[in-house]
């Protein structure tokens, strides 16, 4: 990774408080995190530690309560001045953040190609260009032979590959993966992690993988452990897959 570049994502002192007064709950108490382009980091922690809250803040789905957040060098949230710096969070999510979920959550009434092409189309690409990009990604993820298939015809592993392809469709600098291997067996889980690593390098995308999965934790080179609303950076084993 080229540390001369700007980090894909940089968080400093990020906070999130739910409720107010006596009922207030501090889910994030000052999270610091830096992830570089082409890097895959793990985000682990027990249930209720704040992983999902952090993911939602990173995904611009909920607004943090304080701290600072940069995306590819651009401040997108500053708790000290006015909060979000980007007026259209929907466009921010569409154009600059990719999502991979625990279940693939593909759109069941679209075929594989259109599930991937939908994102560029939503961003304004014409249909031909969007489908070309989709086929390119499906080829990179080795599911091009299923391009015309319906979602229901795919195996769990194939669906997750298509979901990864969708997350990459708009050249997002960061991908947030929420338990992407949870429904998969060991072999398929490791395959998904290998693909994420390859994609991160190939497309210079930073990938944050939230996981409980003991099988894949040893594969991360860097891990952020979240406890009591704070992150602790640890070196991972970086085991080869």
């Amino acid at each position: 990774m080229d540390k001369d570049n700007k980090p894909a994502i940089r968080l400093s002192g990020l906070k999130k408080r739910y409720g107010s007064g006596d009922a207030a709950v501090d889910a994030l108490k000052g999270v610091d995190m830096t992830v570089w382009p082409g890097e895959v980091v793990g985000l682990i922690g027990p249930s209720g530690s704040g992983k999902s809250t952090l993911l939602k803040c990173l995904g611009a789905v909920i607004e943090p309560s304080g701290g600072h957040m940069e995306l590819a060098g651009e401040t997108i949230y500053d708790g000290d001045s006015d909060g979000w710096k980007i007026p259209d969070l929907r466009a921010l999510r569409r154009d600059r953040i990719g999502f991979v979920f625990q279940a693939p959550y593909l759109i069941p009434f679209l075929d594989v190609t259109d599930n991937v092409a939908l994102l560029p189309m939503l961003a304004g690409s014409d249909n031909a260009a969007a489908r070309k990009r989709a086929l390119e990604l499906l080829t990179a993820l080795d599911v091009q032979h299923r391009a015309g298939a319906q979602v229901s015809q795919l195996s769990g592993g194939e669906q997750q590959r298509v979901a990864i392809a969708r997350s990459l469709a708009n050249h997002a600098p960061i991908i947030l993966a929420d338990e992407p291997t949870a429904p998969l067996d060991s072999e398929r889980a490791l395959t998904v992690v290998r693909i994420l690593n390859e994609m991160a390098v190939q497309y210079q995308t930073a990938i944050i993988v939230v996981t409980h999965d003991e099988k894949i934790i040893p594969t991360f080179k860097r891990i952020y452990q979240i406890r009591d609303g704070k992150t602790h950076e640890e070196a991972g084993e970086g085991r080869e897959i």
């Binding site: 929907r90 569409r94 154009d95 979920f101 959550y105 759109i107 939503l122 961003a123």
Partner: peptide, 16 residues
Amino acid sequence: VREIAVLKLIGARNRT
């Protein structure tokens, strides 16, 4: 609901 939530998350406009 889930598909609509995904569509909104990945940036589909309300009018879409």
